[in-house]
Design a protein around this nucleic acid. Structure first.
Length: 629
RNA sequence: GGAGCUGUAGCUCAAUUGGUUAGAGCGCCGCCCUGUCACGGCGGAGGUUGCGGGUUCGAGCCCCGUCGGUUCCGCCA
C-alpha cells in the first residue's frame, strides 16, 4: 500500500515489529466496546482489522470524543503502535498482538444506523440488493468479488501468455438481431428511425469474422445479453470468456481449455485438478446419466432393462418395447426409506420433465426388510425378477425407479430422478470434488415439434462431423416430421437427427461451464445449413450475407468455445447462485433494486427514438381511479 | 405461462387444536462501567402479522383473491 495523507498502513499490516511507530489508519468502525473509561474500536478496511484503544488518562479529549463513535462510521486516526497488555492478545486477529493507542482522530463520514447488520446472515435478498453497497461490505461478498478478479486475471494471463498468445479484441455491444436463439434485447436507433440494434447474445459472428480477418487467436471477456426468464445461475446479462482460433482441431481446444480452467480454479485456491478431463459422448451421457451435463460425483446410473423384459407380458412394457421404446431404471441405493412426501415430490419432478400424465405413479420396486415391495412385482415372472435383481444390483435398502417410453425422454426423466434423489439424500453435501468432464458428439440438429422444423442444437455455424456430412442430404422438406418420429423410436433410417456435430461442452459437477464447436468455414456448406434450418435464401442474404460472403474470401478452418464466467466463479467460490458473485445483480424479474432499473422513459426520449409504448397497466378495479403510491 | 416454498419489530425467527395485552435474540436509544475483542449490567422505544375480502363469538393461524420474494418447469441457438 502506498502511504498518503489518509494512512500510513492498512488495517492488516501492523505487527509487533512496528511497536513504537506512530501511524495513521483510515477505515470503518467495525465494533466499539465502550467501558465508560477506556474505549476499544476495531477499525476495518478491506485488508483486515486493527484494534485501537482510547485512553482517558493519556488523551482525555480524544477519549471523550470517541464515546460518540458508532458502527460503520468512517474515521481517520493517528496513534502509537503498542504491545497489548499481558494476556490480552487476540489470536483471532492477524494484528492481534498489537493495538493503536490513539492520540487523535477525525470522523470522515458519520454513518446512520444500517438497515441490516453486517455480521449476521440475511435471508431477505430484496433488502440485500436494495442496499447492495452495504451487502458488499460483508467479508464473504468482498471475498467473492476479489476472487472473481483473481480468476479473470488468471484467465487473461493464461490466454495472453507467450505460449498461447491470444489477442483480446472487443466487439460491438450495439449489434444486430439474429433470428435463432434467445430473445434479444433491442435498442432503438435514433439515427435510423424505425430500426433497432440488438445487444449480442454472444459475439459469435464477430469472432468468426475475426478469424476470416486472420487474427488466428482471439479471446474476449465478453458481456452477453439474453432476454429470457432468470434462474439462480442465469442473469439477463452475463459474462463469457469467449475464445476462437484458426487452424486447430477439437483436440487443441480441449487442451487449451483444460489448461485455462485449471489456472482459473487454482487462482481460486483449488489446487488438485487432474488433466486431462474425462470425456463422454452425448449418447453415453444420456444413456448413463440422462443428462447432457452429468454430475459424476455419485453413482446411481441408469440401467437399461430392455433385455430383462424382452419377453415381458406386462402390457405397458410390452407395448413400449414393441413400438421401439425402452425400459430403463435407476437404482437409488439406500433410499428405500423414502418418505411419502419425497415420493410425491419425485413424481412431480418426473412429470415436469415429461413423464406422461397417464402414468399416475412413477413405478418403483424397493427391497426392504427382506421383502420386495412394488405395485409391479406381481406382473413379473420369476426369471424377470431374478434378472432384474442381478442387473440393477438390488440390495437391502434400495429402491429402483422405472420408466418405459422413447429412449431420450426415458433417459431424461430418470436422469432428473437420479439428481432429485441425490439432493434428497444430500449425497454431495460435503463433497469437495471437482468433476470436470467433456461431453462431445452432440447431435447437430433437433426437430422442434412446436416449430415443426429442424433447429440447431448448438448454433447454425456448427460443423457437422465429416463422417456424417453425407446425411445432410437426407432431409427434404416434406419428410422432416416423419424422420423425427422415426428417430424418436430409435429407427435406423438415415436421418438429420443422426448427424453429429463437432461440438463439445465442458461440465463441472452437473453444471455446464461452457461449450463450443468447430465451425463451418465454407459458404456453400453454411448456406446448406441455413436451408435445412428453414432460413429462406432471401433471409440468408439479409441476415447472414456478410458471413456467407466472408467465407468466399479465404476463410480459415476455425473453432472455439465460450465459458460462463459467472458460473465458474460461483462454483469456485462455493456459492449456490451467480448473484453472489456479481456486484450488482438483477432479481428474478430482471430488476436491479438499488437503482430501480429498468425505469420509465420520458415521453420526449421516446419521441426522439420514434417509438411508443403499447403497454396498458391493468386496471385495478372497475371504476377505481388509478392511485399513486 | 405453470408448480412448490415464503411474507410476523430495523434484522433473524417464535407464537399449542383458531382463544387474554403477538414474544425472543441481535440491533437501536438512555444510564452505568478503565482491558474488551460478538465486552458487560440496568432501563426503554419499536407491530394495521404484505394487502383486500370471507368464515367465526373470536383469525398471525382456516378459505378466496391479490402483491412481492425465491426455487424449479416451460424458455435459455
Amino acid at each position: 500500500m502506498t502511504a498518503n495523507i489518509y494512512r500510513t498502513h492498512h488495517c492488516n499490516e501492523l505487527r509487533p515489529e512496528h511497536i513504537g511507530q506512530t501511524v495513521t489508519l483510515s477505515g470503518w468502525v467495525n465494533s466499539a466496546r465502550d467501558h465508560g473509561g477506556v474505549i476499544f474500536i476495531d477499525l476495518r478496511d478491506r485488508e483486515g482489522m486493527t484494534q485501537v484503544v482510547f485512553r482517558p488518562e493519556e488523551n482525555p479529549e480524544t477519549a471523550q470524543a470517541s464515546h460518540h463513535l458508532r458502527d460503520e462510521d468512517v474515521i481517520q486516526l493517528t496513534g502509537k503502535v503498542s504491545k497489548r497488555l499481558e494476556g490480552t492478545d487476540n489470536t483471532n486477529l492477524a494484528t492481534g498482538q498489537i493495538e493503536i493507542v490513539v492520540s487523535g482522530f477525525t470522523v470522515l463520514n458519520k454513518s446512520s444506523v444500517l438497515p441490516f447488520q453486517l455480521d449476521v446472515e440475511l435471508s431477505n435478498e430484496d433488502l440485500r440488493l436494495k442496499y447492495r453497497y452495504l451487502d458488499l461490505r460483508r467479508p464473504r461478498m468482498n471475498r467473492n468479488l476479489r476472487l472473481r478478479h483473481k480468476i479473470v486475471k488468471a484467465a487473461r494471463d493464461f490466454l495472453s501468455s507467450k505460449e498461447n498468445d491470444f489477442v483480446e479484441v472487443e466487439t460491438p455491444i450495439l449489434s444486430k438481431s439474429t433470428p435463432e436463439g434467445a430473445r434479444d434485447f433491442l435498442v432503438p436507433a435514433r439515427l435510423n428511425p424505425g430500426k433497432f440494434y440488438a445487444l449480442p447474445q454472444a459475439p459469435q459472428q464477430y469472432k468468426q469474422l475475426l478469424m476470416v480477418a486472420g487474427l488466428e487467436k482471439y479471446f474476449q471477456i465478453a458481456r452477453c445479453f439474453r432476454d429470457e426468464d432468470l434462474r439462480a445461475d442465469r442473469q439477463p446479462e452475463f459474462t463469457q470468456i469467449d475464445i476462437e482460433a484458426s487452424f486447430i482441431t477439437e483436440e487443441d481446444i480441449y487442451r487449451l481449455v483444460e489448461g485455462l480452467l485449471k489456472e482459473m480454479f487454482q487462482a481460486a485456491g483449488h489446487m488438485n485438478i487432474p488433466l486431462p478431463f474425462p470425456r463422454i459422448t452425448w449418447k453415453e451421457a444420456m444413456d448413463r446419466y440422462g443428462s447432457d451435463k452429468p454430475d459424476t460425483r455419485f453413482g446411481n446410473e441408469i440401467t437399461d432393462l430392455c433385455d430383462v423384459f424382452a419377453k415381458s407380458e406386462f402390457k405397458i412394457f410390452r407395448n413400449t418395447l414393441d413400438n421401439g421404446g425402452v425400459v430403463r431404471g435407476v437404482n437409488a441405493k439406500g433410499f428405500a426409506g423414502i418418505t411419502t412426501g419425497q415420493m410425491i415430490r419425485l413424481n412431480e419432478v418426473a412429470h415436469e420433465v415429461g413423464l406422461p400424465k397417464e402414468v399416475k405413479q412413477l413405478a418403483f420396486i424397493k427391497y426392504e426388510g427382506g421383502e420386495f415391495k412394488s405395485p409391479l412385482w406381481k406382473f413379473f415372472t420369476d426369471e424377470e425378477k431374478a434378472a432384474l435383481i442381478k442387473k440393477v444390483n438390488l440390495e437391502e435398502g434400495d429402491i429402483v425407479f422405472f420408466v418405459a417410453g422413447p429412449w431420450e425422454s426415458t433417459c431424461t426423466i430418470l436422469g432428473r430422478v437420479r439428481l432429485e434423489v441425490a439432493a434428497m439424500m444430500e449425497t454431495t453435501k460435503n463433497s469437495s470434488a471437482l468433476n470436470f468432464l467433456w461431453v462431445y458428439d452432440f447431435p447437430l440438429l433437433a426437430f422442434s415439434e412446436e416449430d415443426q422444423k429442424w433447429n440447431a442444437v448448438h448454433h447454425p455455424f456448427t460443423r457437422p462431423k465429416s463422417e456424417d456430412m453425407h446425411l445432410l442430404d437426407t432431409g427434404s422438406a416434406g419428410t422432416l416430421a416423419g424422420q423425427s418420429s422415426n428417430a424418436a423410436k430409435g429407427g435406423s433410417a438415415p436421418s438429420l437427427a443422426q448427424i453429429r456435430a463437432v461440438a463439445y461442452d465442458v461440465v463441472l459437477n452437473g453444471t455446464e461451464l461452457g461449450g463450443g464447436s468447430l465451425r463451418i468455414h465454407e459458404s456453400d456448406l453454411q448456406a446448406k445449413m441455413f436451408g435445412i434450418l428453414g432460413v429462406s435464401e432471401e433471409d440468408q442474404k439479409e441476415m447472414f450475407g456478410h458471413i456467407l460472403e466472408a467465407f468466399q474470401f479465404g476463410a480459415p478452418p476455425h473453432g472455439g468455445l465460450a465459458l460462463g464466467l459467472d458460473r465458474i466463479v460461483m462454483l469456485a467460490a462455493g456459492e449456490d447462485s451467480i448473484r453472489e458473485v456479481l456486484a450488482f445483480p438483477k432479481n428474478n424479474r430482471g430488476q436491479e433494486l438499488m437503482t430501480q432499473s429498468p425505469g420509465v422513459a420520458d415521453f420526449r426520449q421516446l419521441r426522439d427514438l420514434y417509438i411508443a409504448s403499447t403497454f396498458k397497466p391493468k386496471a385495478k378495479e372497475e371504476g377505481a381511479a388509478p392511485q399513486a403510491n
